[in-house]
């Protein structure tokens, strides 16, 4: 089937991964999946913030140090920054036009990956340096 081969792969290969049937639906579904994750993780975080007194450093630090707090917090950051990325991408694609759109999408990627990495690194630093602090 050499006739089906064109520059950049076969017709099927070029269609795969493009268009609303693949990428579009993928983002749409991931947005909903991360929304479901957010329901669980943010209900937990909101309840924790309201039932603990984090005005004291020791209380905040010992709370984050617990494995069963640090792990869901890391999951929360991954989940919510993923959700932010898709949501803000929709806004940029709706409201930002021309070359500025590419710049905005690049800035969005730097922001979400940088932000999630900063948060996860902070949690790991708290967990692995013990509860006494720096």
């Amino acid at each position: 089937m050499s006739g089906a081969r064109t520059k950049g792969g076969t017709h099927l290969g070029r269609v795969r991964g493009l268009g609303s049937a693949r990428e579009g639906a993928g983002h749409w579904l991931t947005h909903r999946m991360t929304a479901l994750g957010n329901i669980l993780l943010f209900s937990w975080l909101a309840a924790s913030l309201l039932t603990n007194d984090f005005s004291s450093y020791n209380a905040a630090r010992s709370w984050v140090s617990e494995p069963l707090v640090a792990l869901p917090l890391i999951l929360l950051l991954v989940n919510v920054f993923w959700h932010f990325r898709i949501g803000l991408q929709v806004l940029i694609e709706d409201y930002v036009h021309g070359p500025l759109r590419i710049a905005a999408l690049a800035a969005l990627n730097f922001y979400v990956f940088g932000g999630a990495a900063f948060g996860i690194f902070a949690i790991l630093r708290i967990v692995f340096t013990g509860t006494t602090g720096a």
Binding site: Y57, A60, R61, V64, L73, V80, F81, F84, G87, L88, L91, G115, F118, G119, F121, A122, I123, R125, I126, G133, A134
Partner: peptide, 24 residues
């Protein structure tokens, strides 16, 4: 509200975590 949470909300959450990691 999604934009506000993704920017202001996220930055305060990160500031809070960074402040705990940074010490007393």
């Amino acid at each position: 509200t999604g934009s506000a949470l993704a920017i202001a909300g996220a930055l305060i959450l990160l500031w809070w975590l960074g402040a705990i990691a940074g010490g007393e």
